[in-house]
Measured scan of single mutants.
Amino acid sequence: ALNRGDKVRIKRTESYWYGDVGTVASVEKSGILYPVIVRFDRVNYNGFSGSASGVNTNNFAENELELVQAAA
């Protein structure tokens, strides 16, 4: 299972961040479909780089994520 702070690569092909590595911000335990919230260094097309207006978190299912580096 994934944990907060883990570095993960995104495998959801239609995602803006496909192939990117993000950090797990939190994992919901309530049984929702996309329980893993991942935070990225770059914002998506809703904002400009360096601006706070873009979105830099997204929810994924565990099977859409590949663990790159476990949290220390």
Rank of each mutant, 00 (worst) to 15 (best):
E66A: 05
Y45E: 15
T57L: 08
N44F: 15
S15A: 01
G50D: 13
V8C: 07
S26C: 14
G31H: 11
L65V: 09
G19Y: 04
V27Y: 09
K7N: 03
N46L: 07
R12L: 05
F48D: 15
S49C: 15
R9V: 08
K29S: 14
A52P: 11
I10V: 14
G22N: 01
R9E: 03
V68W: 06
N56F: 08
S30A: 11
L2E: 04
R39V: 14
Y18I: 02
G31V: 09
N63D: 14
R39W: 08
D20N: 06
G50L: 06
Q69W: 13
V8R: 00
F40H: 00
F40N: 00
V8P: 02
D6H: 02
R39Y: 10
A52W: 10
Q69S: 10
V55K: 06
L33C: 11
Q69I: 10
V43H: 08
R4D: 04
S15K: 02
I10G: 00
V8A: 02
E66V: 06
G47V: 08
N3M: 14
V24K: 00
Y18Q: 02
E28C: 14
K11P: 01
F40L: 02
G47I: 07
W17F: 04
V68E: 03
L33A: 13
V21S: 01
K11G: 04
A1T: 13
S30R: 11
N44Y: 15
Y45Q: 15
A1H: 13
V36S: 00
V55T: 12
L67H: 02
A72D: 11
E62D: 07
G54S: 05
S53W: 08
I37G: 03
F60A: 00
D41I: 11
K29P: 11
V38I: 04
K7R: 12
V68T: 04
L2V: 06
W17Y: 05
T13H: 09
I37Q: 11
E62G: 06
R4A: 11
K7M: 10
L2N: 01
V27W: 04
R42A: 05
S49N: 12
E28V: 12
R9N: 02
N63H: 14
I32Y: 10
F60E: 02
K7T: 07
Y16H: 05
I37E: 08
N59K: 07
E28I: 12
V38D: 00
F48K: 06
L2W: 06
G19N: 10
S51R: 03
V55R: 06
L2S: 03
I32F: 09
I37F: 07
N58H: 14
A71N: 08
V8Q: 00
T57R: 05
N3P: 00
N56W: 09
L65S: 03
T57F: 14
G47K: 05
A72M: 12
L67S: 02
G19E: 05
D20R: 07
T23N: 02
S53G: 11
N44D: 14
G22D: 02
L67W: 04
A61E: 05
P35T: 13
W17P: 00
R39K: 10
N59T: 08
A71V: 10
A1Y: 13
S51Y: 07
N58P: 03
A52D: 13
A25E: 15
A70H: 10
R12I: 05
W17T: 00
S15N: 03
I10M: 01
R4T: 10
Y16M: 04
R9A: 03
V21G: 01
S15D: 06
G22H: 01
Q69H: 09
T13L: 12
A25G: 02
G19C: 12
N46Q: 11
A70C: 12
R9L: 12
G19V: 04
G54A: 07
I32P: 06
R4Q: 12
G19P: 01
K7A: 05
D41K: 09
E66L: 05
D20T: 07
I32T: 13
L33H: 08
A72I: 14
A1M: 12
S15G: 02
T57E: 11
F48Y: 11
D6F: 04
I32H: 10
L2P: 03
S49H: 06
Y18L: 02
E66D: 07
L2G: 01
I10T: 03
S53K: 07
L65I: 04
I32L: 08
S53A: 13
A25N: 06
K11A: 06
L2K: 01
I37M: 13
I32R: 09
L33S: 09
I10H: 02
